[in-house]
Write a protein that binds this DNA or RNA. Structure first.
Lengths: 205, 205
DNA sequence: GCCTGTTTGAAACGGATGTTTGCATCCAGA
DNA sequence: TCTGGATGCAAACATCCGTTTCAAACAGGC
């Protein structure tokens, strides 16, 4: 039974590094110290192995800190929103352990049928909680579309530091690494809270 | 000379659909109505063809519409920043013709050596212009790191509507399509201009 | 120890892919 | 008309990949 889990672990890293097509079963098996035929014996084929890798990765992803929610402190929505953004940024940048972030990015660039299950099961709850937090900070001053827009742009600001990392590193400095997660989170939080302020743009001076 | 451009055009669509590894020389040539050896004759090899496709796609993206710059109206930085964001969002979402967005997303998820050239040649100028615009709107009230942070988060907010599209469509409505480019751009612009306001967060009420 | 079902291993298979080769074709310019 | 370089084409080549085969090694119940 050790061989099967070894292959699963090795496949997770190989698929995260090289993608589904780029990752070869030979590299997976070599990394797992197993024979080439082991993949087809323990899993039916390469595709089934990939599906199990995704499930395994997402199941073990929430092993870290718990997501901050509005219910934790209903009277301090701004503090909870800040905590949520900090949690999300740290989750994205501190990819110690399972490289679930890279697997996710690859799924977005090249969606398979596994993305539907992932969206409903793992992403929607996180997104819904962000919606509750933003709505609470805004105090009901946002309609559905503006609320959704605000949530998407918050997530986008966090995501770009991970998904766009390869590009950002090739542009001119200053650069931002995982050590700057707190600075990044503070910046995004400040912008998000200001955006929830119902004051019109023209009267801010 | 027609064969070379035919191959370039066909390769752009094939690489956008299937990625660099997934797109085969044979499919490209079949689509271009050329022989398999044409790729290695006109371009050195598959990698060089891919690099030329990336540059060609990014250069011709949103052809006809020039990037708004600060130099166009140095006394109206906010208006120019709004124009820049609108231009960038429209460029990302209205991918009529060249599928530059999908190519970039794939390149970010799976960087090749072509990304270096792309970053220096095509992306850095666009990013630098955004930096000038944000600096002008802020009126010199931002240091290097905060300026860079602001630019990255602006780009991130635009990008997420494209790179995260597959996921966003699978979440709960309301959804945003390319028809909502103007609404999206206005939302991002409003947030960006507020973020450049040097007023401390606590005194906004 | 023997039998039975499970797991591992080396090798090979069949197919796909990037690239090369050798020759045919075209087409200005002498 | 002849020529030489540029281009196009069919076929072959070399390599890599996922998968299969089949026999050996193993584990546990009798």
């Amino acid at each position: 039974m050790s061989t099967k889990t070894d292959i699963l672990e090795a496949a997770m890293h190989v698929f995260a590094e090289r993608g589904f097509r780029g990752g070869t079963v030979r590299e997976i098996c070599e990394r797992a110290g197993a024979n080439v035929a082991a993949v087809n014996y323990h899993f039916h084929d390469k595709s089934s192995l990939y599906a199990e890798v995704l499930q395994h990765a997402y199941r073990n992803a929430g092993a870290g800190e718990a997501m901050p929610t509005l219910a934790d402190a209903p009277d301090q929505p701004e503090k909870q929103l800040a905590a949520w953004i900090h949690w999300y940024v740290r989750r994205l940048l501190h990819s110690d352990g399972t490289p679930v972030g890279r697997l996710m990015a690859r799924e977005l660039a090249d969606p398979t049928e596994a993305l539907d299950h992932l969206a409903r099961g793992a992403v929607q709850p996180v997104f819904s909680e962000l919606g509750r937090l933003v709505a609470a900070v805004a105090g009901g001053g946002l309609d559905d579309r503006r609320l959704k827009l605000q949530c998407i742009t918050i997530v986008g600001q966090c995501l770009v530091f991970h998904s766009g990392r390869a590009m950002l590193q090739r542009l001119e400095p200053p650069h931002f690494t995982s050590d700057d997660a707190e600075e990044i989170a503070r910046h995004i939080t400040a912008g998000a809270i200001r955006a929830c302020d119902p004051t019109p743009l023209e009267s801010r001076r």
